[in-house]
Each structure stands twice: as C-alpha cells, then as structure tokens.
C-alpha cells in the first residue's frame, strides 16, 4: 500500500495535536501514515503510524524548510515516492510545505479541510471561508498538502500491525538559514489561555473609544478581555490578548464573542471553547455557525444594556 509521508508538527519539544488530522487524512485516503520526526522524546501515539522515521536532526534544524528538503529527498531516495507529502496548516507547515513542493516541483494544495471520495477531490476554503473549491490534482507523481486543524482528527485510527521504526542518518545541513532563538512576547499580567470566561471583541467594535466600555463590561461580568486580529492590529488591545491563528488558542468555559464575524483565523483559536456565545448584527456572520448561542443585534446596544443591568444589581 502506498504511504502518506507526514512531517511531524513539533515545536519546543511538543508533538502537536494537529498531527492527528494528518493521520486522519491518510486514513480517509486509505494510505499508510508514515511519520518523520526529529531527535527527542516526543509524546507520540505510535500505534497511529505504520512507520516512524526518526531523523538525526534537532528540532530547530528539522523544521527549517531548507533542511526539510534534504530530509524529504533522503526519505524518497530510500523508500520510493509517497502518495502524498502531508503537513499541518500551522506556522511550520505553511512555511515548509510550499518550499518542499517548489523544490520538487510537485502540485500543492493548502489548508485542505475535506475529501470527497466519489470524485477524489480535496476541499479547500477560499475568500476567508466564504466559498469552497473541490480540487482535483492532475498528472503523475505525488502531491503536497497542508491540512486544516480539526478537520480529519476524528478519522484517525490506530493500526493493527506493529509500527516499524527507522532512523535516518548522515544528513547534511543547509547553513543558509539559521535558527537564533525564540522570543516570547513581553511578560504580560494576564494569560488569556488560562481564563475561564473570555469577553472577546472584534472588528465590529468600530473605534478605539468603545474599548473602555467593553473593559468595564468585562470587569462587571468577571470576564477577561480578549480580541480578534483587527483589534490587535490597531493596537486597541495588547498583542497578548489576541485570539486566533497568529495569537493564542483558548478553550474557556465561556467565550463571548462580540462584533467578531468569525474568520477562520480567529475561529481556529477559539472553536474548542465549551460554550460560545456570539453577538453580531449580521445574521449571516460565520461566527453563528460555531456558536452555541447567538444574539443578532448591535454589540454596543447589548453592551450598554448589560452594563445597566449589572450596575443595578
């Protein structure tokens, strides 16, 4: 059976849960999931993988796209062409996948969130999830994809036979790009990933002048304030308060989203919250597809009324 070569999504010693989506993708396509991993002790559920190839490279070297080309070429040289090269649509996968694809001139589709068996097409979002395209890959040879987090993990299955282990050694390094270190965001007083109740505001807030009243509402509710990218970009809230792909991933008990339309980049950072409540004046806003409760109204009016009720208490 042909194999899907999964490049592990690892960062700072952690094997990300997103890797399960890559396993699920292989299972859906009915190809063997093979994993390539850097050196180190990762918490991998090995029974998911037909073969695990550990590369003699440290993590930072491994996720350097220039070295990834060297690794992938070596695997192909040793084991033959895979059916597909599979990455997660994360900061690593988004960087490495197109680079490797370009080097090998392979077809590429990114941010894949579905597979239609009958037509053999891959589903990809465009225009911030406003439309989807069913894409067919043409021609010979393998292809490269990145998989959207959360879209295939429910399909991940353990295999029945034993996992085969391999080591990949004697790899050169491309010195033209070097990792110099991680930079943490400035120490912040509040960690939104640890909050039970987030009041999150988005583009709909309109102007900076509105922010203090949301802060007041948050304090009356006992919530921690956070925001989506547009609010952070405008510096209306500090970067440490950003929820979404390029900010924090949060899972509070309650996520109250006000004036957030629900762009994928934001939703991916909060969709696993226990309870999502969305306030938006646009009944068509995508956020309502993810929310458990929705209020279709002007966020400022809801805010003002809530403040009034809470003050009266």
């Amino acid at each position: 059976m042909s194999y899907g070569l999964i490049m592990a999504d690892v960062r700072r010693g952690l094997f990300d849960e997103r890797n399960l989506d890559l396993v699920g993708f292989c299972n859906v396509l009915n190809i063997d999931p093979w994993l390539i991993l850097p050196k180190g002790a990762y918490n991998v559920r090995e029974a998911y993988f037909k073969r695990i190839i550990q590369v003699e490279m440290g993590e930072e070297e491994f996720i350097n796209p220039l070295n990834a080309v060297i690794t992938v070429k070596k695997v192909i040289e040793k084991f033959g062409d895979p059916f597909a090269l599979i990455f997660s649509a994360s900061s690593s996968g988004m960087e490495i996948a197109p680079y490797v694809a370009g080097y090998l001139k392979s077809p590429i589709i990114t941010d894949v969130s579905g597979y239609q068996k009958e037509s053999g097409t891959l589903l990809k979002s465009l225009y911030s999830d406003k439309v989807f395209a069913s894409l067919k890959i043409k021609g010979e040879g393998f292809f490269v994809i990145t998989v959207r987090s959360g879209s295939f993990r429910h399909e991940a299955r353990e295999i029945e036979e034993n996992t085969i282990y391999e080591k990949l050694e004697g790899l050169t390094r491309d010195e033209r790009r070097r990792f110099l270190g991680y930079i943490e965001e400035e120490k912040q007083e509040v960690d939104i990933t640890k909050a039970d109740f987030l009041l999150s505001i988005g583009r709909g807030v309109g102007t900076k002048d509105e922010i203090p009243l949301y802060e007041e509402l948050a304090s009356l509710l006992g919530a921690t304030i956070s925001g989506s990218r547009p609010v952070i970009d405008k510096k209306w809230l500090p970067k440490s308060r950003q929820v979404g792909t390029s900010g924090k991933t949060v899972k509070p008990k309650v996520y109250l989203a006000m004036g957030i339309s629900g762009a994928f980049q934001h939703v991916s950072g909060m969709k696993d919250s226990e309870c999502i409540i969305a306030v938006n004046k646009d009944p068509e806003a995508p956020i309502f597809q993810y929310a458990h409760y929705g209020i279709i109204a002007d966020m400022h009016k809801i805010r003002d009324r809530l403040i009034q009720i809470l003050r009266e208490k």
């Binding site: 979002s125 969305a278 309502f288 993810y290 458990h292």
Partner: peptide, 17 residues
C-alpha cells in the same frame, strides 16, 4: 496541475440557538 471541479458554499453547521 490542479483543477477546480466545483465551487460550493461552506457546509452549514448546526446553527446557534
């Protein structure tokens, strides 16, 4: 190397109450 077979709207999830 890729072809769009069909465009579609995003799947409607179970809506919010």
């Amino acid at each position: 190397s890729i072809e769009v077979l069909k465009w579609s709207y995003p799947p409607k999830k179970e809506g919010a109450k």
